[in-house]
Design a protein around this nucleic acid. Structure first.
Length: 903
RNA sequence: GGGCAGUUGGCGCAGCGGUAGCGCGUCCGCCUCACACGCGGAAGGUCACAGGUUCAAAUCCUGUACUGCCCACCA
């Protein structure tokens, strides 16, 4: 005998091996089939799988498996991402913790090797997690954003954009992370509200006057001030524009200028302009041709300032400056102020706007086709509400800063001749005694040679002393090419030919701009085609209260712990039941138990059916001559469930698919069909019932297979002989189809009547504490011949499901003594309960029903009294209302009669 | 400051023109020979608020109030 409860662990282990060994998920170009392709958002090689991965990859897996079963050439491309800054940070932390070393202690080459070693270990860990989750990825061929093929694609992209002059070198104010010591692009900067202060400082006039008071949140930058700006419309300062004031502590004179950028209402209306340390100020500076003076260096230390503060950390300098200003009597006041602080999206340290020469990609031309694709609807978003933000973002794009001053990543494929570029190259000796190129300046004469490999010699002077640009590319630069590079682009490979463009990109909305937008732009630029036609934005998995999961909050749920405890299918299904596009998923262990219970229900229903298969020879075809009401009904429910399940997948509403199949299998199939079938096990009908049971169950398992692959595969294997299926894997079988011939409105309405009557009897039983085993008497009084026929024809349904021993059915039946009364539509139900009836209870029950009936009558009558309703509403609706009124009136009459009897 | 979501029984959500559903929780009764990870039953909601459109609104429109998210150079 099989165990009572489903035990997933062994089953999962066994099936994962089987699937992988059978190479079930490998790419196989089949030109006769329509390709359905998803490239995985490659997880960073930074560590463990989290709930977010579990969610997004499960969604992709469901889509891939389902489309495969729909008969398409489905292929899910596996891979991982080198994850630039994030990975470098992880390794640096590890080095510091385990060996008390910094990357500089190792040197560039050794450090990069360390990361590669890490990749080789961690990569395997990631694949093992992929296996455990049952994701249909071919794990024998995992791609990596830094492997040779992908590196070639990155180079080719760089070269082509360079030749088109889209890639250029420029000196400007960029976002600098002092902690990560690198430049960042605009979207890698996050804005956080910090409780800070606003200081009011006095800049005295050069002529000895009181000068002007400004408000600032960054007093440490006063040493870099180039001007004071006021709004040209500001009457208060009109006569001061053009005069000079003295920077406190620095004692340097700067002019007062007028610029529209200054808000009249904020602070004092006067703004200090510090072009080197603030983006707005930089623009103002450009407009007024102000000098740029940098006082904070790339390490966050003070430079070019009064000697006292030289080398001081920027934060400390702020405190000291405020103290000194106060002592000098130049601090007018200090206010509490919440301001938006820019922080690094990787380490959350405060970003320093920093003047620097960097590599950029010119975006305006690249954005145009992407905007068009989104606006025209060629690129579809699920949900659609992301289309507008997407387009708006593209329309307001700044050029993309792609150079990073870190070591881990694709090295910029640009070389310099030490002879020809000597004035633009700065070298330093590192801790290993190697001379390293640390800084490149085109302004000072560096001449780029774009090449993947080190060029043989300088094309200008023929010199052999060539050095590579020290920077690496933004990790998103290689990610942007992912949907092409995975197929071998720029080569014209058969994979590129067949699988590109891909079908759908499934990812979180938090990387819509960082990643999705860039893939779209690059895809259009290099192939003329969108890299995918659909974008499915999935929500973020949060804790039960909607809080983001984080280690510091201690609310993290580890998907692998959960799969070990409840089974992978349960974890998958729990996520899918809540998978509405773009909607965040509140998640807790409780979410999983419900899904686990469902898996157990499937298991037990199957176990029961298999038990009753003993002695029956398969295969059993789906019977053709269906006459029994329950059979007609369940086939209608089944085919509708299949229809909705399929629609859910096609419309990216997997919650709909999951919930539909859940309720069909549990509510319709188990609670009603199988229960009713039990009484036919002893009859000549048995084989037909079993044929229906096994075929419907098998079909439902197929429909569920993309969602919960393990348990369905396991059970299907046992059922296969009974349905005559030869194919070993569900994935290679066809997804069930909606069959209009199985729909049966009449059966559904008859069944609803019986279910309603049974429900009323069950309620009475329960309310009067009738012992469950006790068979009771029930009298059903119908109003029409039609109803009578249904009740009579299926009285065995009622006796079984409501445990009725003596069932009397007729038209206008007499009300028995000491009876409980209920009304369902036009049927009056009497349950005589001599000795069991509690008159008080029954009176209360009836009174409740009485007021309900009255309310129903009132509302229907009111509606029917409106001439406009009769005139405008569809006839069907009017008819329905009339029927409802009649039923309510009947209920009122019956309940009133019963109440009178009680009195 | 701009934009986008959300506001439905104790909790988490679905429904998105015909008058409320699900899961969990609660309460009552059951170890009914597939399943107590179960079975049967019950209680519990004027669908945030105010207007409007319509014969009819949780469902469409407008506004308000909260909540969350995204974007933005107010020092």
């Amino acid at each position: 005998m099989l165990p009572k409860a489903y035990e997933p662990q062994e089953v999962e282990k066994k099936l994962v091996d089987k699937w992988q060994q059978a190479k079930l998920f490998a790419a196989h170009i089949d030109k006769n089939k329509k390709p359905f392709v998803i490239v995985i958002p490659p997880p960073n090689i930074t560590g463990a799988l989290h709930m977010g991965h579990a969610s997004t990859n499960t969604l992709q897996d469901v889509l891939i498996r389902a489309h495969r079963m729909f008969g398409e050439d489905a292929y899910w491309v596996p891979g991982t991402d080198h994850g630039g800054i994030a990975t470098q940070n992880v390794i640096e932390k590890k080095l510091a913790k385990e060996e008390h070393k910094s990357r500089h202690d190792l040197g560039r080459e050794a450090f990069v090797q360390t990361v590669w070693d890490w990749y080789n270990d961690c990569g395997n860990a990631i694949f093992n997690q992929f296996r455990k989750m049952g994701w249909s990825l071919d794990l024998s061929d995992i791609l990596f954003t830094m492997d040779e093929k992908r590196a070639q694609a990155v180079y080719e992209c760089f070269r082509r954009l360079w030749e088109k002059k889209y890639i250029y070198r420029g000196k400007r104010l960029i976002n600098w992370c002092v902690r990560c010591s690198t430049a960042l692009s605009d979207i890698e900067v996050e804005h956080e509200q910090h409780a800070g202060k606003l200081w009011y400082l006095r800049y005295k006039g050069e002529d000895g006057s009181d000068g002007i008071v400004i408000a600032t949140t960054r007093p440490e930058t006063i040493y870099a001030d180039a001007a004071i700006a006021v709004n040209p419309k500001d009457e208060r300062y009109k006569n001061m524009v053009g005069k000079k004031v003295i920077i406190p502590l620095a004692n340097r004179a700067i002019p007062i200028i007028a610029d529209e950028a200054v808000e009249l209402g904020f602070g004092t209306g006067a703004l200090k302009i510090t072009p080197a340390h603030d983006a707005t100020d930089y623009e103002v500076g450009q407009r007024h041709n102000l000098p740029i003076m940098t006082v904070i260096n790339d390490k966050g230390k003070m430079i070019n300032c009064p000697e006292k503060y030289l080398g001081m950390d920027r934060d400390l300098c702020r405190q000291q400056t405020v103290k000194d200003l106060e002592a000098a009597g130049l601090l007018v006041k200090e206010e509490k102020y919440n301001n938006a602080v820019s922080t690094c999206y990787r380490c959350h340290n405060t970003i320093e706007p920093f003047m620097s020469e960097q590599w950029f990609v010119k975006m305006d031309e690249l954005a145009k086709p992407a905007i068009k694709a989104a606006e025209s609807g060629e690129l579809r978003f699920h949900p659609e509400s992301w289309k507008t933000p997407f387009v708006n973002w593209l329309k307001n794009l700044q050029d993309w800063c792609i150079s990073r001053q870190i070591w881990w990543g694709h090295r910029i494929p640009v070389w310099y001749c030490r002879h020809c570029s000597q004035n633009g190259l700065t070298f330093a000796t590192d801790q290993q005694g190697h001379e390293q190129l640390t800084k490149v300046s085109f302004e000072d004469g560096a001449k780029p040679i774009v090449s993947y490999h080190k060029p043989e010699k300088c094309p200008v002077c023929g010199g052999h002393d060539l050095v590579q640009d020290p920077d690496v590319l933004d990790t998103w630069f290689s990610s942007a090419l992912w949907p092409m590079s995975v197929f071998g682009w720029p080569e014209k490979t058969p994979e590129m030919e067949h699988f590109y463009p891909t079908s759908v990109m499934v990812t979180g909305y938090e990387i819509l701009y960082l990643w999705v937008a860039r893939m779209v732009m690059m895809g259009l630029e290099f192939t003329g085609k969108l890299p995918f036609t659909d974008v499915y934005l999935n929500g973020i998995v949060r804790d039960r209260h909607g809080q983001k999961m984080s280690k510091s909050k201690g609310n993290v749920i580890d998907p692998l712990d959960m799969t070990a405890k409840y089974g992978t299918d349960a974890v998958r299904f729990s996520l899918l039941m809540q998978a509405v596009p773009s909607k965040d998923i509140p998640y807790s262990e409780d979410s999983i138990t419900g899904a686990r219970n469902f898996c157990n229900k499937i298991y037990n229903a199957s176990r029961f059916i298999l038990m009753n298969m003993e002695g029956i020879q398969g295969p059993l075809a789906m019977p053709k001559d269906i006459t029994e009401l329950a059979d007609r009904w369940i086939l209608d429910r089944y085919t509708h469930a299949i229809k909705t399940a399929r629609e859910g997948i096609e419309k990216y509403n997997l919650a709909l698919t999951a919930n539909t199949l859940y309720h069909f299998l549990w509510g319709d199939f188990c609670d009603w069909y199988v229960e009713l079938a039990k009484q036919r096990f002893q009859t000549a009908d048995k084989e037909k019932v079993m044929a229906l049971c096994v075929n419907i169950l098998y079909g439902t398992l197929k429909a569920l297979h993309p969602l919960i692959p393990f348990i369905t595969e396991e059970i299907a294997a046992s059922l296969r002989p009974y349905v005559g299926e030869k194919e070993e894997f569900l994935l290679n079988q066809a997804y069930p189809q909606f069959d209009p011939k199985l729909t049966d409105k009449e059966a559904v309405s008859k069944m609803a009547l019986l279910q309603g009557v049974i429900g009323q009897i069950r309620t009475i039983r329960s309310q009067f504490n009738v012992p469950p085993a006790l068979k009771i008497t029930a009298v059903l009084s119908a109003k029409t011949q039609e109803e009578l026929d249904v009740l009579k024809a299926y009285e065995n349904y009622i006796t079984l499901m409501a445990k009725v021993g003596d069932l009397r059915i007729g038209v206008n039946m007499e009300k028995p003594k000491q009876t409980a009364t209920a009304v369902y539509e036009n049927i009056t139900i009497y349950v005589p309960l001599t000795g069991l009836i509690d008159f008080d209870k029954e009176r209360k029950r009836l009174e409740k029903n009485l007021s309900l009936a009255k309310a129903n009558i009132a509302s229907r009558e009111a509606r029917l009294a409106q001439e406009n309703f009769l005139k405008h509403a569809p006839q069907e609706q009017v008819e329905k209302t009339r029927e409802e009124l009649a039923a309510a009136k009947l209920a009122l009459a019956q309940v009133t009669a019963s109440l009178e009897d009680l009195a």
